[in-house]
Nucleic acid binder design. Structure first.
Lengths: 251, 251
DNA sequence: GGGCATCAAACTGCATGCAATTGCAGCGCT
DNA sequence: AGCGCTGCAATTGCATGCAGTTTGATGCCC
């Protein structure tokens, strides 16, 4: 086989990042739900790479908080607790306020057009599945972050936005995305006008309302919740021998 | 509070995290300066593991932004540009304001004592090297973040704080840490009093002044700068064959 | 039937081996 | 001397193999 010169998009198109991108997208579109198992073998087979690479990719995703890794156990898609979800949204609010503060009044016409085009796309996808709507809405925020030209900010906003998507899978009800779209439009317009204070406020309330709509209640969830409840006790396990929790399963 | 945070996301005891911790600390104490090479072999040998593990650890550190990985090239300690450094501080300010906002008036006596003890330690280390002072100062901020009991916040504050340490290596002059210590004390006292607005303001100015003291000038640096200048053009290289830039060097 | 020991299959943890790429020293040319 | 070229050592990219751990299915005993 001739050496395939790895011609692909901007950054690093090695196999690891291909896998990461694929999994991120699967997670964001809820094709992979929280708790879904991700065995290294299957991943490797699916993507035509060895376990070594699949494992490395899982490590990267774990560093982003999308995947949970426990020693000697199959990797799973992360299942944030309700509190973690709330924390993620709080952080996200601050970061995205920073984004729009930097952007207010500094966008080129082309950039504004790009943002509008994206929201149009969101609009167009309104008939489709929730999964696509959520992905597009998330990508709008990432697009904004990218316009700051601050790689660090892009990274953090992306990460925390993905995490928030995760929590949507867990705690959200079938929700209406229309208002989100209108809020996106309002943000663009305030950005164009350069009204810094207003756009920060808009972003704040936008994300806050998304969070409130998504994180419906701190009420105990279904069976999955057991894992969260038990998490704090995980220390006892730490050594290597599981305690076996005799017959907790009642409920 | 015996309730250890027990960082659920980051694995705690395998060889990878041992290496990561060691390297992070070496970087934070400027034993490893930006640009320092980190060959997988040497790392593996030094830590008594195979290249596979060393490589994985480097991947984790790269995900944190402490290490730069380029295909087929030796990993190096990250050398953030001046702008990236400034961005990191901006993000840090927002995150740490969030930390102290959540903490204001909510700290237990034991926690306040712990914070004071830490600042005492900083004080005690004033005669030592800059490296130790910087590490202790950074750990103060991380300690604060840990008290929020929000693993996500801890992770982001830690990461961005480490990054800021990196920039100190690059752009800082031999600086005086005394005032920082006083500012730490002021923050503790405002936290104890529960004055949310004031503590947020204190934190803001504290970090801002650290940044301003550290990031002395946007003035072009030495040779290293060439890399930064060329960075935007790196896309042309993307494929795999470098363009070789014939004799751009004029001027 | 329900609980418990046992064991094989599945899976992870890690090292090693081989091919491909890079970087650099040395050489020749102008 | 300066500049480009060539070939070898250093280094990374990735797959595979083996050992140890977890999982869950089976059979046994009550």
């Amino acid at each position: 086989m001739a050496a395939r010169p790895t011609s692909k998009t901007s950054e690093s198109s090695d196999k690891v990042s291909v896998i990461c991108r694929a999994l991120r997208r699967a997670i964001i579109e809820q094709a992979l739900e929280p708790g879904a198992k991700l065995p290294e073998d299957s991943l490797g087979e699916r993507f035509g790479v060895s376990r070594t690479i699949a494992r490395y990719a899982l490590g990267q995703l774990a560093a982003e908080g999308l995947v949970e890794l426990r020693r000697n156990r199959i990797a799973v898609v992360a299942t944030p607790s309700w509190q973690e979800a709330r924390d993620a949204f709080d952080i996200r609010i601050e970061l995205e306020r920073l984004v729009v503060r930097q952007l207010a009044g500094k966008l080129t016409k082309a950039q504004i057009a790009e943002l509008n085009a994206h929201v149009d796309a969101e609009d167009g996808a309104r008939g489709g599945t929730d999964a696509v709507s959520i992905r597009l809405a998330t990508e709008f925020h990432i697009l904004l972050a990218q316009m700051t030209n601050s790689p660090i900010l892009v990274r953090y906003v992306s990460e925390v936005a993905y995490r928030c998507c995760l929590t949507l899978s867990l705690y959200s009800r079938p929700h209406s995305t229309e208002c989100a779209i209108n809020e996106h439009r309002a943000i663009i317009s305030a950005l164009a006008k350069g009204d810094e204070a207003k756009v920060m406020d808009l972003m704040h309330h936008h994300l806050d309302s998304v969070a409130n709509r998504a994180l419906v209640a701190p009420t105990p969830q279904r069976g999955r919740d057991l894992l969260d409840i038990l998490a704090p006790y995980a220390d006892d396990i730490a050594g290597n021998r599981v305690v076996k929790l005799p017959k907790v399963a009642r409920r």
